[in-house]
Structures are given as structure tokens and as C-alpha cells.
Design a protein around this nucleic acid. Sequence first.
DNA 1: TCATTAAATTTCT
DNA 2: AGAAATTTAATGA
Length: 231
Amino acid sequence: MEDEKLKYLSRINIFSDLDKDTLQKLDKITPMVTVPRGAVITSPGDVDSVLYLLKRGRVRLYKTTPDGSEITLAMLGDGNVFGATGSLGLGNPDMYAEAIQSSLVCAMREEDVASLIQRNPAVGMRLISLLSQRVRELEEQVESLSHQDVEGRVLRLLVHLADDFGVADRGYTRLDVPLTHEEIATMVGSTRETVTTTLSHLGRLGLVRTGRREIAINRERVTEWLNAKSN
DNA sequence: TCATTAAATTTCT
DNA sequence: AGAAATTTAATGA
């Protein structure tokens, strides 16, 4: 029972270098909560700044535009972290975090994160590399938005999601993250309807396989297709 | 090429 | 049944 909880903690990416003793202490100050699908974990105007540890599940980070539409900035999986918009400056405060599937989350006060990093610099290094990955992805997203059509943007996104969530499935790489066409649209700057037609077109080409809240891609063909397209 | 509008259809709870 | 997700089609910028 206790061991189970510790396993989860050690699977948090930034904690993977910590010894059992330290993990045990952390466990005591980070109560674990299950959040249902659709629940918003953080939203703009949150009072205290805490770092959320995503032990198991899928969380979508997004913000809203003045006209009410959403822009998705990141999709997080097991072991990732979010929140901490105070002194750590991990992202900006006007952001929402929504569990897109039932998730196991725990919260850690920012002061505790800071002192932990002072004692264990490896945690800081891990945090930096996690953030770097997120920045790199955002850069690619911007680049894609500015010079690719919807089809290209969707394909680039699917390849990226395959890197993070891909599992082998009957010759394809299935994305182990439940996405609606609507959500995909908020990641590629398009609309639900256009995403639908784009995906079914890609399906006819044999590049992807789709189901309700499920997408699989043929990595080889997709990368091949993307290369042919940009040249 | 793609957003918008409108409407139908399929699949979940 | 009702809600949510997906699909199709027509139109105009």
C-alpha cells in the first residue's frame, strides 16, 4: 500500500534521482487526489502557487482568447508537472489545467519545491529539461502554425503526440490519449469540422486510423509524407 | 484552402 | 432518452 504510493512518486520525472528516504518524506507532505475526467485543476486567479505532480493520467494545459475560444498549449502525461506560476514561473498564471481523463494528482507547495531543489540539484536539472522540452514543442507549434496548412499541422501534431503517448497497435502507433476533434482543433488553430474532414482524408490515404476519441498513425508514411510536402 | 453555418448521424452514458 | 462526438454538405471569403 505505502509502497504503491512511493512507486508513483518515484515515477514523477523530476524526482527520479531521489532516494527512498527522501521520497517517503515527500509522500507525507503531498496528499494524493483522484480527479475525474473534465475536471479543471487550475484556472486563472488561483490563490496559492503550488506545483502539481501528475502521477497518472492526462492533463491538458490551455488558455482562452477574448472571444471565448481555447488554445491548447500542452498535453501532459504520467510523471509530468504543472502549475507553480509563482516564483518558479513555470508557465503563466492565466492558464487552465484540465484532466482529460481520470487522473491521479498531488500538490506540493512552492516553498517545498524550492528547498527540495536546494538539497537535491538533480531535481532542478530534471525540471529544466522538462521545461525545455515544453518550450521546444511550443516553438515547433508556432513554426507549424505560421507556414503549414491544416493537414500539415495536424500531421506534425500527431507525430509529436506519438512521441509522448504512442503505443504499438496492429502495425500502427496508437496515441494513448483520448482526444476529440474539437481538442485537436484547439492545438492546430483550426475548427472541429475541418479537423474531421482532414482526418478522414488522411485515413483514406492510409496515413492514420481513427475511431471515436482514438487515433493511430503510420509513422513511416506520415514522416515520408511530411518530407515530401515541405520540399 | 478553410471558416462558417446548418443539419444529420453515430455512439456514449 | 439525452448528451457528446463525429460526419457531411453548401456557401463565401
